[in-house]
Design a binder for these strands. Structure first.
Length: 210
DNA sequence: ACATTAAGTGATT
DNA sequence: AATCACTTAATGT
């Protein structure tokens, strides 16, 4: 774990902090599709993403889902930060998009480190900043983009976090992620295919224009 | 061969 | 853009 840690965060954190993370952190792996944080969960530790990608999702009272953003290697969950500080339940769901490997940090350390390590402070502020940016982007996407543009952006994002332009997913799953119906996705995907932006297969989609 | 699941399509609101 | 109803095609048992 130590080398992996150094590889991903070595340039960010000072040695003393890396040491602390190394001794206090718990390494964990999740397989793709595993739910890491469920709605309403209490957060007792904070994750540092070593590899893989995590899909952050919101859900309304009717159980309708909506994808907010993806976390990638080197990221941390901003929701967790506010949960740890405010002692509230998680208002989001986190599902492993790919196989994920991460380190869990005890939440009590977070605030202590904030004052004792400048690099930690910078890291937290930086990732908070990134998260807010992504959230704003997500809002823009939902509010101002038409569904066909949203769909194409979704496909590109998904290809990005998976580092693979061949996506194994179904029209139904996409419709759930984008909060719309399967039929609509099928039709829009057909349109994108005719425009030469994607290639459709059964249970998979190849993104051509990245 | 049969059942199940994914995807395509016309018509309606 | 959503929903219904139905078809076709691919896949699993």
């Amino acid at each position: 774990m130590k080398n992996e840690l150094a590889k991903n965060f070595g340039y960010l954190f000072e040695d003393a902090l890396l040491e602390e993370i190394n001794t206090l952190g718990i390494a964990r792996q999740f397989k793709a599709e595993t739910t890491i944080i469920e709605l309403g969960d209490f957060i007792k530790s904070m994750p540092l993403l070593l590899s893989g990608a995590i899909k952050i999702t919101r859900e309304d009272a009717n159980g309708d889902e909506l994808v907010l953003y993806y976390l990638e290697q080197g990221d941390t969950c901003a929701m967790t930060l506010s949960c740890c500080l405010g002692q509230t339940k998680s208002k989001i769901r986190a599902v492993a998009e790919t196989d994920v490997s991460l380190i869990l940090l005890p939440k009590e350390k977070m605030t202590t480190w904030l004052s004792s390590y400048k690099t930690w402070q910078a890291f937290i502020l930086e990732s908070y900043h990134n998260r807010v940016e992504e959230l704003l982007q997500a809002v823009d996407t939902i509010a101002f983009l038409k569904l066909d543009e949203r769909l194409f952006k979704y496909l590109k994002d998904k290809a990005m976090v998976n580092k693979n332009d061949e996506l194994t997913t179904t029209h139904k799953q996409i419709s759930e992620d984008l909060h719309t119906s399967r039929v609509v996705i099928s039709r829009l995907l057909k349109k994108l295919e005719n425009e030469g932006k994607v290639k459709l297969f059964r249970s998979s989609i190849k993104v051509l224009e990245l």
